[in-house]
């Protein structure tokens, strides 16, 4: 199985780190992973996106023209990547700040209001983990346990007390999506 995922949003939303944790979790399960950022003169508030490929086989191209799943966290990303989801694929978008919602009928569209939920629950710093939870509910690309292992491995030890909060955010994201399945 191969999952080709694009994650896109504003710089500062945790797009790149969400992708990195997903890739790391894939590594924990001994899968092949590639994490390809659209690097550039990026800054907070600018655009950021990353391609993450998790596969049972060696990954071919890190550069893709279409994706199994697109996770979009702002309007420009939605406009850019909605057309690039493969027919039958999935689009997960955060409703915050979206004026023109997705229109395609040949893909599965999920709305995750993680931005609003995270703000209400005072969990804004783990907003990206909530979105990741949503993805994992739709496509269990990796086990939650592997994500937690990845967090333990990538976070400096002084931040390890925040891992339960991350787990809570992942489960919250799964709950939001559960209602739409």
């Amino acid at each position: 199985m191969t999952q080709e995922i694009i994650i896109s949003g504003f710089g500062g939303q945790g797009v790149l780190s969400m992708g990195k944790i997903l890739a790391y979790a894939g590594l924990m399960e001994d899968k092949e992973v590639t994490w390809m950022p659209a690097y550039g003169p990026e800054q907070r508030g600018g655009t950021a996106n990353v391609t993450v490929i998790v596969s049972d086989e060696p990954v071919s191209s890190p550069i893709l023209s279409s994706y199994d799943t697109a996770i979009v966290l702002n309007q420009p990303s939605l406009e850019k990547f909605e057309p690039k989801v493969k027919p039958g694929g999935s689009l997960i978008y955060d409703g915050y700040g979206i004026n023109v919602p997705p229109t395609r009928k040949d893909i599965n569209v999920y709305r995750i209001d993680a931005m609003d939920t995270a703000a209400q629950l005072n969990m804004i710093k783990v907003f990206n983990m909530m979105v990741l939870g949503g993805l994992l509910k739709i496509h269990p690309v990796v086990e939650i346990e592997s994500v937690l292992k990845a967090l333990r491995k990538t976070l400096p030890e002084r931040h390890h007390h925040l891992i339960p909060l991350n787990e809570e955010a992942i489960r919250k994201g799964m709950e939001i999506i559960q209602k739409q399945l």
């Binding site: 890739a23 092949e32 992973v33 590639t34 994490w35 390809m36 950022p37 690097y39 890190p62 550069i63």
Partner: peptide, 10 residues
């Protein structure tokens, strides 16, 4: 090149 330099893999 920049793609191989910047991407992360196992």
């Amino acid at each position: 090149d920049g793609a191989i330099g910047q991407m992360m893999e196992k």
